[in-house]
Write a protein that binds this DNA or RNA. Structure first.
Lengths: 242, 242
DNA sequence: ACCAAAAGGTGCACGAACGAACCATTGACG
DNA sequence: CGTCAATGGTTCGTTCGTGCACCTTTTGGT
């Protein structure tokens, strides 16, 4: 291999990734993301501590610390005793009301990443044999976004739930994780900057196009529809990143 | 939201992911992956411990433990003193000589995931303003694969280096990580099952098509070429997963 | 009203991971 | 040959994370 000198350090620099969070921080982030994306909605109860700790693969003490942090952030409340547990109290903030700590480069990267993994998930979802229940769920998820059009916060939650639903139907754990990550950053961006209301009607049509293609099993159409949808959001947000 | 009952547990089950590795294990895996994929090739020296620990975001003690594990696996040797360090001794194993511990479902998922993220990375790479050095590097990476055609082990390394090069040129950390993960699993699969030699000539042409499209800045062509390439490998491997 | 079960709350011992300091080896250079 | 710097090797005290056992609170059911 007669590669020029600059190549020597390229792959290591690109591939080696620093760990940036410990177990506690990772647990907080995973739960906070799940709550902010509507995996658990306002008023909904998280699984019991023992179950949740096992599911997340962490010690119960660590999970308790994480839940305490969520409590401090106002995302949940807890009550002890039978019938008690951890209940979500989070509602999506008004756009523009929460600054994000992420840098512009990371935001742009997440938009690029999203542009790849969300259409990919839609493409794969369209190739799955979907049950009647799954089909019903997908349609209901899209309907829920439309129904929440008048309430900015609820709309945000319903929107991310819709995207997660598409990803879930891909039945690919790796893609679900990727879409979740992309949605988490998107949620941060949208909370940090105002959303133009006129985009909402158009995005419901784009959702419907995705749903239609997935239900028809047309993978290329599903991907194209989701690409169009991501591009529309992306164009809106890139102008604001700088 | 009038969703049916099954929907209540769908998102949490899909989105909540258990932690499966501790810091030591993660470090071992990251280094082993980098070595197995050719980020550091046989005879090449890893960065000094102190630097590597900082780059990976772990304590030096943990890194030393990880390097000891790599030593035990025969991937590296170490020498103390000035001019010393950790040197890679890994060469790609003969196909079919190393069983994989991953399950069929995880393998299939990785193939699906790869089918999404590698074309996506090629698409994004084609949209980048590439320097002359980067272009030279990309071409050299593809050439290296062709030159290694007679040596199965070296070919495997050159092939994964080519794919990582494409991902690196996407300039998207999130996509680079995703492609790395996909390549890691692919490498395991290929090490576990024999490769039919007749596929090699064809894949170099597919590489060239990717390179050509990326250099021309044709994002759709880059993506299509990489899709075709991934599909060819995938078809070969899926028949063997079961 | 009482009991049992669900669920959060607490404490403890141990191992993992951390950061810092120091030691030993090795080789380049004057 | 001696010195110094690079690099791996070792030790130590602290914090984090773990698994386990036990306690307290609360409520549903009898």
């Amino acid at each position: 291999m007669s590669a020029p000198v600059p190549e020597v350090g390229r792959l290591p620099a690109a591939v080696l990734r620093p760990a940036t969070a410990n177990v506690f921080e990772t647990t907080v982030e995973q739960l906070a993301t799940a709550i902010r994306l509507g995996v658990f909605v306002d008023g909904e109860q998280l699984p019991p501590e023992r179950e949740l700790a096992e599911r997340l693969g962490v010690a119960r003490g660590t999970l308790r610390d994480a839940i305490a942090a969520l409590r401090d952030s106002g995302l949940v409340t807890t009550r002890r005793g039978r019938g008690g547990g951890t209940v979500v109290t989070y509602t999506s903030p008004e756009p523009g009301s929460k600054p994000t700590s992420r840098r512009g480069a990371a935001l742009a990267d997440a938009l690029d990443f999203r542009r790849v993994v969300e259409p990919g998930a839609a493409w794969l979802a369209a190739r799955q044999e979907l049950s009647a229940d799954q089909r019903t769920w997908l349609v209901a998820s899209a309907d829920a976004v439309r129904e929440a059009a008048q309430d900015t916060g609820a709309h945000r939650i319903a929107d991310s739930r819709f995207h997660l639903a598409v990803a879930t139907l891909s039945a690919s754990p790796m893609l679900i994780e990727s879409v979740t990550r992309a949605q988490a950053v998107l949620g941060e961006m949208l909370a940090a900057i105002p959303v133009l209301p006129r985009n909402i009607d158009h995005s419901c049509d784009q959702h419907d196009a995705v749903v239609d293609a997935v239900l028809r099993g047309d993978d290329d159409a599903a991907r194209a529809a989701m690409e169009e949808h991501c591009d529309a959001t992306s164009a809106l947000l890139r102008g604001l990143i700088g």
